[in-house]
């Protein structure tokens, strides 16, 4: 498949801070690509260099075969960008925002209603942006990035500061826009989001990419134990330790947790004892991958 974005040896420093410190990756056409990392990892800086907002100190960037820097009017209509701040014209309604952005790209005014529908804001067309909720504003901001039907969309932390319900709503929108061969590049500091949405994830910290691959592959490569928990009292800690395949057990008074590398054997044995009351099985997550590669807890 064609490489839509190619980044090689990217570096950017601000004074003594190496915001981006040698980043190399490629995004394929139609891919949903995530850049995951805590705040200050250098995600936004990397993204802004790729979009053409900043000049890299070192390294090459190619987007759709073109260089984004300096400002490249040939490339701009083919990419869509949602910035971290909701960049709206003051006191304009949702529909007027879309029309204004659309007209900068030569999009007919009628397109804006279709976009509002796509992000589920058709009922808010005439509401001024100042009166939209955080989630609605983010969806409008994404619609503005998509109004000219770009081949690549860059989304910088679209779900930051949203409540869980609004985040889930937005995920549906994001899945929707990635269909039809469009390439999506997303930065996020939410592990679950990256795991659910992205085809491939680059885990970034302190300006470097530490791991790169499909979330499931990264998690599997970790060889981390699964954790099985049941309600306290269903099984004693002693009995649990004797189960075949159980590595460690612990009981915090609410739940009994067994960690194991052979979850099927443990669950089978628990079933035989009829001790599956309130059972939960949790595999390793990207969070564990992050802990493994950085040696520190993930703090978003």
């Amino acid at each position: 498949m064609a490489q839509t974005i190619e980044v090689t040896g990217l570096r950017k420093r601000y004074g003594d801070v190496r915001a981006v410190d040698g980043v190399t990756f490629a995004v394929e056409e139609g891919e949903f690509f995530g850049i995951l990392g805590p705040n200050g990892a250098g995600k936004t800086t990397a993204l802004e260099i790729i979009e053409g907002l900043r000049e890299a100190d070192e390294g090459q960037v190619s987007v759709l075969g073109m260089s984004p820097w300096p400002r490249n009017p040939g490339l701009l209509p083919r990419i869509g960008v949602q910035l971290q701040s909701s960049s709206f014209f003051e006191r304009l309604t949702a529909r007027e925002q879309l029309r204004t952005f659309g007209s900068l790209y030569g999009v007919p005014a009628g397109k804006s209603d279709a976009m509002l529908e796509l992000v589920g804001l058709d009922g808010k067309a005439d509401v001024p942006v100042e009166k939209l909720s955080g989630g609605q504003a983010q969806r409008l901001s994404i619609a503005c990035a998509l109004v000219h039907d770009p081949e690549i969309v860059f989304l910088d932390e679209p779900t930051a500061a949203l409540d869980p319900q609004a985040r889930r709503n937005l995920w549906d929108v994001l899945r929707e826009i990635s269909t039809g061969g469009r390439t999506v590049v997303l930065t996020t500091h939410y592990m679950d989001e990256a795991e659910i949405l992205c085809d491939r994830v680059a885990i970034m910290d302190a300006g470097r990419i530490l791991r790169l691959g499909p979330p499931a592959v990264l998690v599997r490569g970790l060889d981390a134990p699964a954790r099985i928990s049941v309600a306290s009292g269903v099984l004693t800690a002693e009995d649990a330790r004797l189960l075949p395949g159980a590595d460690e057990t612990g009981d915090d008074g609410v739940s009994l947790t067994i960690s194991t590398r052979d979850p099927s054997a443990v669950v089978a044995a628990m079933a035989a004892k009829d001790a599956l009351d309130g059972v939960q099985i949790r595999g390793a997550t990207l969070e564990d991958v992050f802990l493994e590669v950085t040696g520190r807890e993930y703090r978003a």
């Binding site: 979009e51 053409g52 907002l53 400002r71 009017p73 701009l76 209509p77 990419i79 960008v81 910035l83 971290q84 701040s85 909701s86 960049s87 709206f88 014209f89 003051e90 952005f101 900068l104 790209y105």
Partner: peptide
């Protein structure tokens, strides 16, 4: 000032508008 602090200037920089 408003357009700069809200990021609208940069958003316009990313549009093909001269």
């Amino acid at each position: 000032v408003t357009w700069r602090t809200k990021g609208l200037l940069r958003r316009l920089q990313l549009s093909p508008a001269p």
